[in-house]
Design a protein around this nucleic acid. Structure first.
Length: 562
RNA sequence: GCGCUUGUAGCUCAGCUGGAUAGAGCAACGGACUACGAAUCCGUAGGUCGGGAGUUCGAAUCUCUCCAAGCGCGCCA
């Protein structure tokens, strides 16, 4: 609806210019707002104030011209007015809201989807946890935000590829292999022979036992059978990575998160991509030798100091394969790439972008884009739970899903802006009370389903494509407000997609549920008045569909009973 | 010390890329079920938008500065 209003204002500007009443383009972008105060209309527009200076006219004078050219907006507008310093307030005709219900019915499960992405390719990389342990609560937030971002962009008409990157080479993996080997040999973390920087968690013992028992594990794309020999460090490394990847896959599956592509750091080395990147950086004269190491002059690209690429020991630092990996993304044709990661890794942004710029391949400066989520602190029993993978103390994503439930966990993670810190109070999230907003939303859906059961017993079903006259009965303030909110779903999805902000949808859902509950308490649906009953059942059918569609974008179920 | 993020009601947070009287949930207080689910609704109270300065028709929103918190600042990832 908002887009239709914007188009109306746009064409009013054009015709004003054609009639020489306003200076012609370029006009500033038309921004349609939704006023808090209902007296200010369903929508408002501030463009007259923006144009006043350039037009050398008073804002209200400009507004008067625009309004004259708007007319009744092809029947969409019931009233227009100039208010305050020069706002144009627009009142939508009730018939427009009513007929929108028919469109929602026609679109069914597709209602809410838009075409603003026009089928362009976008790749979103998220989670990308190192295969050195189970997924913890921080990964959970990344999984919820990343997955929902994918669903939102998909709903907004983008062609989304979901990708997971495994750092399965490098120092951390060596530490993992040494830790598992130690456990195989019966060495405990308090033993002096325990490797420095080893992973102390109990799960390492599970990996070791599985290895010694020669188990076979299936990760997303490979089968690995353990050699069982504690002296074979390579075999241990391969098995441990496969084992932990499988654990992560299971956790993600339980969270209803799936990926299209898994990329492995080790594959980049195997293909020679890492070496090729280094050679190109050297050839482009952005690298230099110093102190026995090879450096990249990242300070040429906005970094505060240069970075080592090849260490004295000959190995590459982690960001070199990262650059190779992103070059690979670019070469796969993704002109739009979003990386969802924890804010503790934010320093990689400058480095990776600098490396890509130094390749001098025409990659845009701000590519790739990033969505960073701030840290999650976990509260249990009123106390903060310290998270440390090495020490083995953390709350796993699996624990959380088992305790709190998938729907509540997802909703909880999505309630806040990604760049605000999140306190996850496990005791609170476990409570199945009204403090948990997901139940509030789901209850609205279940309640509507219950009304339909009741209606069926009395011989009512929602009509199909009723006439405008039949829908004209929907005229109470609550009904109009409800219809208006239903129409806002596509706009909300577009906004969430543009800003990469899933939390807008959780707020939308809470508002929609609240609007329904208010309507329900004030208006009786099933009455002696058959025509009114049918109209209201029709409205509720669309409300249930809208709740379900929006919940589905968040990966949350819409139960018919609770 | 430098960089990124944050600071809005007692608590947890929104505030639509500068708009009109700053909102919601929880907590507090007071009301509403012998008809569709009370996991609900209605009402009351609660704020110098961290402090200060600036930009303009107009600032919670933009700029500068100071204060506070989190996270980074490795030849770890």
């Amino acid at each position: 609806m908002r887009n239709r209003i914007a188009a109306l204002v746009e064409s009013a500007l054009q015709s004003s210019a054609a009639d020489k009443e306003l200076l012609s383009s370029p006009f500033p972008a038309v921004i349609i707002g939704t006023p808090d105060n209902p007296d200010h209309g369903d929508f408002s527009c501030n463009i007259a104030m923006q144009m006043a200076k350039g037009e050398r006219k008073a804002p209200r004078q400009v507004a008067e011209i625009i309004i004259r050219h708007l007319g009744d907006g092809k029947g969409l507008l019931a009233k227009t007015e100039i208010a305050g310093p020069g706002f144009i307030n627009l009142f939508i005709a009730p018939a427009a809201w009513q007929s929108a219900l028919s469109e929602i019915e026609a679109q069914g499960e597709a209602f809410g989807r838009t075409t603003s992405g026009s089928g362009q390719k976008v790749q979103i990389e998220f989670v990308s946890a190192n295969p050195t342990g189970p997924l913890h609560i921080g990964h959970g937030r990344g999984a919820a935000i990343g997955d929902t971002l994918c669903r939102i962009l998909d709903a907004a008409g983008w062609a989304v590829t979901r990708e997971f990157y495994y750092n399965d080479a490098g120092q951390q993996i060596s530490n993992l292999a040494l830790s598992v080997q130690a456990r195989c040999l019966g060495i405990e973390p308090d033993d002096p022979r325990w490797p420095a920087d080893g992973y102390q968690g109990e799960y390492i013992k599970d990996v070791a036992n599985a290895y010694l028992a020669r188990e076979t594990v299936e990760a997303s794309d490979q089968h690995t059978t353990a050699a069982g020999d504690p002296q074979n460090l390579d075999a241990i490394r391969t098995f441990a990575v496969a084992y932990l990847r499988r654990e992560q896959d299971l956790d993600l599956a339980a969270f209803d998160v799936a990926f299209d592509v898994y990329s492995l750091e080790s594959a980049l080395y195997a293909k020679g991509s890492v070496e090729a990147v280094v050679q190109r950086l050297i050839a482009n004269k952005h690298a230099y030798e110093q102190d026995g190491a090879l450096w990249l002059r990242t300070t040429d690209f906005g970094d505060d100091k240069d970075r080592v690429m090849r260490k004295q020991d000959g190995g590459y630092t982690y960001f070199v394969p990262d650059v190779a990996y992103h070059l690979d993304k670019w070469e796969r044709g993704f002109t739009r790439v979003i990386n969802e990661q924890g804010a503790d890794h934010h320093s990689t942004i400058t480095r990776v972008r600098a490396g890509l710029q130094a390749l001098d391949l025409g990659i845009p400066k701000g590519w790739p884009e990033y969505v960073l989520h701030q840290m999650v602190t976990v509260m249990r029993g009123g106390e903060e739970v310290k998270i440390s993978k090495r020490a083995g103390s953390y709350v796993t994503l699996r624990d959380l899903i088992d305790e709190v439930g998938r729907d509540a966990t997802r909703f909880f993670f999505l309630m806040r802006r990604p760049d605000a810190q999140l306190v996850f109070d496990i005791d609170l999230a476990k409570q199945q009370t009204n403090e948990n907003p997901v139940y509030y939303v789901q209850y609205a859906h279940a309640r509507i389903c219950s009304i339909f059961e009741n209606a069926a017993e009395k011989g009512f079903t929602a009509p199909r494509q009723p006439s405008p006259e039949a829908l004209a009965l929907l005229s109470t303030p609550e009904e109009l407000q409800l219809m208006k909110l239903l129409c806002a779903l596509p706009d909300t999805i577009d906004d969430s997609a543009i800003h990469f902000e899933p939390h807008r949808l959780t707020y939308y859902l809470t508002e929609l549920a609240s609007c329904f509950h208010s309507f329900y308490n004030k208006n009786r649906v099933i009455t002696e008045d058959t025509a009114l009953t049918n109209a209201r059942l029709y409205l509720l059918k669309r409300t249930a569909q809208t709740l379900k569609n929006a919940l589905s974008v968040l990966g949350i179920s819409a139960p018919e009973r609770m």
